[in-house]
Design a protein around this nucleic acid. Structure first.
Lengths: 129, 129
DNA sequence: GTTGACCTTTACGTTAACGTAAACGTCAAT
DNA sequence: ATTGACGTTTACGTTAACGTAAAGGTCAAC
């Protein structure tokens, strides 16, 4: 059995995702990441990288860091009694509905953009005539 | 020919959309709304209402007010020479791609939530056994 | 041994999107 | 004529999500 342990430096991750190291440290400060340390230096695992990816995905959807943290934590329901697990199921469902709302919003906006394109093309024809 | 002119007070709109009057005035301050006035009092037209709806839709998608303004303005390409109209077409396309990215992000997140639900249900079975 | 490329912490600064309060005007109802 | 419900402006306060130094530590390369 062989195990290959990939790891990343903070600047490597920053470059890959087009963010600054400040941002990554900020996420750690907010409890969204907790990389290991070799001395003072942060060492990021593939799992850390995945978490960062999820954070940035949430960001693209307009989620706050608190929301992203919530969603990430949903993936691991290790802790909790029956009551807490049931509440978790509700929160998951709430997020699902929010995402469905966003889907509807996107559909409408895309339709609006199609309209905008048509109008702009029409305006162009006016100009060129 | 008959014309019915519907209008809204600021508090009526605030209540309908679940926001505060402060927020509506703030949007006006930022140039996103420009209602008529009867004396000092603001009078909102159906078009103003639509604009407000678009702003809030953008907000749900994580857009800044500047972005929402841009999108709203795209709908009316009245002003502009050929060059500006072409640039407008490009910006519209950019927004479209951004929305498509968001669609992909939502798909992945929904899948992630399904996983989370499954895991939570499994954890519940453990507890109940 | 010093330069350069990394890393670190600490801390003050900035922007967006409002919240919150103060102080005031208007107008219908009691 | 005063209360209450609405409207107004002005202005300071707040939070999130970083940006931007400053000051310093490490370590390989020249």
């Amino acid at each position: 059995m062989s195990t290959t342990t990939t790891s990343y430096s903070i600047s490597a991750l920053a470059q890959e995702f087009g963010i600054t190291t400040r941002t990554i440290r900020f996420y750690e400060d907010k409890g969204l990441l907790s990389p290991e340390r070799r001395g003072q230096t942060r060492i990021y695992s593939p799992e850390d990288r995945v978490r960062l990816k999820l954070i940035l995905r949430g960001k693209r959807l307009g989620f706050s860091l608190d929301e992203s943290r919530e969603i990430i934590d949903m993936y691991d329901p290790s802790k909790g009694n029956v009551d807490q697990l049931n509440r978790l199921l509700e929160r998951i469902d709430a997020k699902r509905q929010q995402l469905r709302q966003q889907q509807r919003d996107i559909e409408k906006m895309l339709a609006q953009l199609d309209e905008a394109t048509a109008r702009t093309r029409a305006a162009l024809k006016e100009q060129t005539s």
